[in-house]
């Protein structure tokens, strides 16, 4: 089946690219990063085809079950990475974060629900597109934020310890990484706000009230408030650099929990993102 072949093609390409990226960063090998870039491109094409196939098959935005959620979330993360790669090679170091993250998501999705799931009536809403599109856009942006955070921390450490940039010279100046990180924070923060607002309007139609303090809603709110707080720390209290980069890397965990871990952390959520046994 083409569907399965494409999934595995993506997984293998992302897996090899992950190994190359890790080795490239650990042993400061530029060439490996280049090869990784050339693997990510065909994988992204296959990924896009898969995404389109799932959409065409059900007629709905792919958001049904773990694999479709992984496909969509990963698609935005890799699309951002490819975009940065095309615009300015020096910023593509974020792949160190986005490619392994997408690989993990897809692996998890394949484990849980490889074939398309039937669409429950509750998912058939035009709000699904807006809600999930912005949710995954936010996730993709926040992955990039953490990617830039990691790049910042690594480059900063190299400069501090060796007083020379060397391999890290190919990446932008620290101030620019810091600004790129903040750009994607803004992107994610606005997308997450639209996700919460559209989810709340959808909830009114589906469940009868805008806000029901469902655990998924609370996590999303906590996560959004935390990103809001981090914007405050930067804009009003002048936080920059390493401290902010670490905070941003850490904040991704709140999004991961609200998207993928909620059923592990709490019971009784009305939100069902995937297969429930």
């Amino acid at each position: 089946m083409l569907d399965t072949a494409l999934i595995w093609f993506c997984i293998y390409c992302y897996a090899v690219a992950t190994i190359l990226l890790l080795t490239g960063f650990v042993f400061s090998k530029n060439k490996l990063l280049k090869i990784a870039g050339f693997l990510v491109l065909p994988a992204f094409l296959a990924h896009t085809t898969l995404f389109g196939m799932r959409w065409v098959r059900t007629g709905w935005f792919p958001a049904n079950g773990e694999l479709e959620n992984a496909l969509t979330a990963g698609w935005f993360a890799i699309a951002f990475t490819v975009y940065l790669f095309a615009r300015n090679r020096s910023t593509s170091g974020v792949a160190l974060f986005t490619v392994p993250a997408t690989l993990l998501l897809m692996g998890y999705g394949v484990m849980k629900a490889p074939s398309p799931l039937p669409m429950e009536a509750s998912l058939k809403s035009s709000w699904l597109l807006i809600h999930v599109l912005f949710a995954q856009l936010a996730f993709g942006s926040y992955l990039l934020v953490s990617g830039f955070g990691l790049l910042y921390v690594l480059k900063d450490r190299r400069i501090r310890s060796e007083n020379a940039i060397g391999f890290y010279g190919r990446f932008p100046a620290l101030e620019i990484i810091d600004e790129l990180m903040f750009k994607f924070v803004i992107y994610g923060f606005i997308a997450q706000a639209i996700m919460i607002v559209s989810g709340s309007i959808w909830a009114k139609e589906l469940w009868g009230s805008y806000w029901g303090w469902d655990p998924v809603e609370v996590w999303a709110l906590v996560s959004w408030l935390l990103y809001g707080l981090s914007i405050h720390l930067r804009v009003t209290l002048g936080w920059r650099g390493r401290r902010l980069a670490w905070l941003m890397i850490f904040l991704l965990s709140t999004v991961i929990i609200s998207y993928w871990g909620i059923n592990i952390v709490v019971e009784n959520s009305k939100h069902i993102f995937g297969v429930v046994s």
Binding site: P215, W219, L225, H232, E267
Partner: peptide, 27 residues
């Protein structure tokens, strides 16, 4: 003060976070 904003916002986040750990009556 803006510092107070940070404090209040952080406290609210902690409270909402707590709501995920302490079982809520409505659930």
């Amino acid at each position: 003060s803006i510092r107070f904003t940070t404090t209040v916002l952080s406290s609210l986040i902690v409270v909402y976070f707590l709501s995920l750990l302490v079982p809520q009556k409505m659930l």
